[in-house]
Computed example of a mutant assay.
Amino acid sequence: MTALDFGIVFPGQGTKHELMEQALLLHRAHPLVQQLFATFGALEVDDLDLHDTAVSQPVTYVLGIAAVESKLGSEVRLPLVFGHSLGELTAAVCAGIIDVHSGFQLALKRGRLCRDRGVHTPGAMVAVAAAGLDEIEWVRRRALASTPGVLEIAGINSGRQAVLSGDAAVVAKAVELAEEECLRTELLPISGAFHSPRMIAVLPMWRRAVAAVEFRAGHSPFLSTIDARSHTDPEEVRELLIRALLMPVRWRETLQAAREFEFTALLDAGPGQTLVKLARRDPIVPIEALEDYRPAG
């Protein structure tokens, strides 16, 4: 198994569809991509409905794995791996804690559960950028005061950006209030209140799915974005992946924790370069695009 001096990070759902389509075409011959197409009865990229989270989640998972294996091979030892939201599952596979095919089945299950929950209780997610997180909390509380429902901080990506998740009407109110404050907002292409209490209804089904999969000691350090700590106990990783459906993504804290590990850089496996862009706005540790990586020799 080859040892490398850089870590790998994996994005969650939310990559622009055109970037996902490009990545699917690039990795079309990869066995896992072929399995993905067969699973959804797709012959061409256009046959995949990337607007459907039941499709886009496993697509994101598959493309992350395909990118790493295409660039680095299927057996690499890394100094660190972690992921954002869905990317936490991909990272657990890359770390050797879950086998790649079990990871694919979990990505399919997670996508279906999230889709079904969004249909039953429509939700939305929005990224809000401000001078500080206190401004985002000010918007969140006022939105809840005027439009009762659920609105939670689903992730803290930097000292100036967080993602809000909740009922569609409350998210819409938060966007309105944020824009009144001249804050920048970006609605995510997601139709559910992920990483919020709205996901509690599907948690038992997700727990059963994760419990059915074998978890083992990995070969690479795994850093969780749920508690911003490294884990070697496979059962701890199992429980974290279960809780991740409701818990916020502590991305900024996890990047700070990553500085304790020895690596020359972190590489964003994609699809897209979401994590590269986040690192440019809040340069705690350098993150580069895996697609731009050129191995020595």
Rank of each mutant, 00 (worst) to 15 (best):
Q105M: 11
E75Q: 15
G41C: 03
A279R: 13
L50W: 00
M1L: 10
L241K: 10
R250A: 03
G192V: 12
L241E: 05
H195V: 06
H17V: 11
I153Q: 07
R141N: 09
L32M: 06
R238C: 10
L245G: 02
P221K: 09
R294Y: 09
K173I: 00
V139D: 08
A279G: 12
K277T: 13
E44V: 00
Q273S: 15
D99G: 08
H195E: 08
A91S: 14
L4Q: 13
P31M: 02
D167L: 03
E88W: 12
D5T: 06
T60L: 09
L267D: 02
Y61P: 04
T121W: 01
D292N: 14
D167V: 00
F6A: 05
T232R: 14
L50N: 03
G7Y: 10
R115I: 01
E253Y: 00
T121C: 01
D46A: 14
C182A: 10
A154W: 05
I226H: 09
V202K: 00
A127Q: 08
G7F: 07
R216M: 10
A217Y: 13
T15D: 08
S191M: 00
E239C: 11
L187W: 00
V210K: 10
R281Y: 06
L43D: 13
Q34R: 14
L78Y: 02
L278M: 15
K71I: 08
P148K: 06
F104R: 05
G87H: 11
G123R: 05
E176H: 12
L177Q: 08
V126Y: 07
L245Y: 02
A265Y: 05
L266H: 01
A228K: 13
F40G: 05
L4M: 14
V210C: 07
A265F: 07
I156K: 04
P148F: 07
S230E: 13
L19I: 12
L266Y: 01
Q22N: 08
S74N: 13
L245C: 01
F82Q: 06
P197F: 02
D47P: 01
L24V: 04
S165T: 06
G41V: 01
L267S: 00
A244D: 15
A129M: 09
E137L: 09
R117A: 09
G12P: 10
F10A: 07
I8E: 02
A228C: 12
R280F: 10
V139A: 01
G159K: 11
T254S: 15
E181H: 12
M125E: 09
G155N: 11
G87C: 11
V202G: 03
V237H: 09
E291V: 14
G270M: 10
A42M: 00
L19A: 14
V163A: 13
Y293C: 07
L267R: 02
